[in-house]
Design a protein around this nucleic acid. Structure first.
Lengths: 212, 212
DNA sequence: CGAGAATTTGAATCTCTTCAATCTGCGTGG
DNA sequence: CCACGCAGATTGAAGAGATTCAAATTCTCG
């Protein structure tokens, strides 16, 4: 039997519901998402779930693991995921681009999280959904995965509920209202935003809100 | 007239409502809070406010400014504040303790923020208040500013509302219920927690929830 | 085609908000 | 020393937004 040496970096795959990391276990590595979506979440004792981060293609998962602490919340794949795994430390050497991207990703994540505090604390259900869809579209666009005003959106309404702090039922009803108002088209994992400006208006964006 | 050279580091003071930093302006420096409380917040177009971070004695404000980007949300003093100002870069040299503390502070802030997403997204009003008070007590305790089960808590009910995503009126009523249940004593800027375990129970803590 | 997952619908209920008024503590000036 | 003013805290009543529970419908995929 050949003894395996775990390589310092490689390509890895996950299926939906597979864990990229579990809480309080040392992560297998730092992942850079190449394809697919994943999320980090926390469960309350009675089963309520809140998703606290979403990982889209291009994102690092999780930069802060490189800063000396392991995951405190589980990370699970939402779709099929293809990722590039590297050792759990700040990227060094190279052109410096990797390093740059690493820090940028870290700070971006923190800013995005701060933006979510505003959404969860102060926005109504329609505003939350508008804001979420805008953020996802913008992130997909930056990743080069948007086509015109459309992009993939492989979340169930239950996932959306756990992101926005609402119930699945209320997400469903609110989405219908927004559809009827012509604000969004969302069906079979595909999002189309007919009028960006209108949706931004509906999201109660602060002027300084960069969306993502 | 003597031309002044801004020193690389010094001691600074702020009065309540004074800004430590404004959005999109380069920060005057990196602050280490020595005394008093400050907060970061965002305003929605119609005036709704959400506080997104609280700075207590010992905290860095804001580590990520050293990572190359300025503040995207204003930071304002809630009380009289005494702080140590240093240049906006990652602490270098020295014993390495400063550096260690810097990274720890950065990661702590991010984890705490993730914890708040859960609170704002999934906890009820009493749970939010219980969780907030526990976090504040614990942070004050670690800063050496708790006395037995008590500590200072210089927030108005309106501040608490903007932290927890509730209305001041509802904060008031919920706090009364909790007082009557013997869960907390909170008056004239002073907090006492008669029974830590009971309050933790009321906060719907996840087992892995470190509180702060 | 069948089965499980995801979405949709309805009705009742509850939590939290809104608006308005009152009360309290406290520093200031007369 | 007390009246005034103001911010913060408290109370009440009515209403809106979101949840809950249960059932029905539609989708997706093997």
């Amino acid at each position: 039997m050949l003894s395996q040496i775990a390589p310092d970096e490689d390509l890895v795959f996950f299926r939906p519901h597979e864990y990229l990391a579990r809480e309080n276990e040392p992560p297998a590595g730092l992942y850079q998402m190449l394809e697919g979506w994943a999320c980090r979440y926390r469960l309350l004792p009675d089963g309520r779930r809140q998703i606290t981060a979403l990982y889209l293609p291009g994102d690092y998962c999780e930069p802060q693991w490189a800063l000396g602490r392991g995951p405190t919340q589980p990370v699970v794949a939402l779709t099929n995921v293809r990722a590039y795994r590297s050792a759990c430390r700040v990227p060094s050497g190279g052109s410096g681009d990797a390093q740059q991207g690493f820090w940028k990703n870290l700070v971006d994540g923190s800013e995005r999280q701060a933006g979510w505090l505003v959404t969860l604390g102060r926005r109504s259900a329609p505003e939350r959904l508008a804001h979420l869809l805008l953020e996802l579209f913008e992130r997909m666009r930056r990743a080069g995965l948007a086509y015109g005003q459309q992009c993939a959106l492989p979340l169930t309404q239950m996932d959306i509920a756990d992101l926005t702090g609402l119930t699945p039922v209320h997400v469903n009803r609110t989405l219908q209202t927004m559809r009827n108002a012509g604000l969004v088209e969302l069906q079979s994992r595909w999002l189309r935003i007919p009028d960006l400006a209108a949706l931004r208006e509906a999201a109660a964006m602060a002027p300084q809100d960069a969306v993502a």
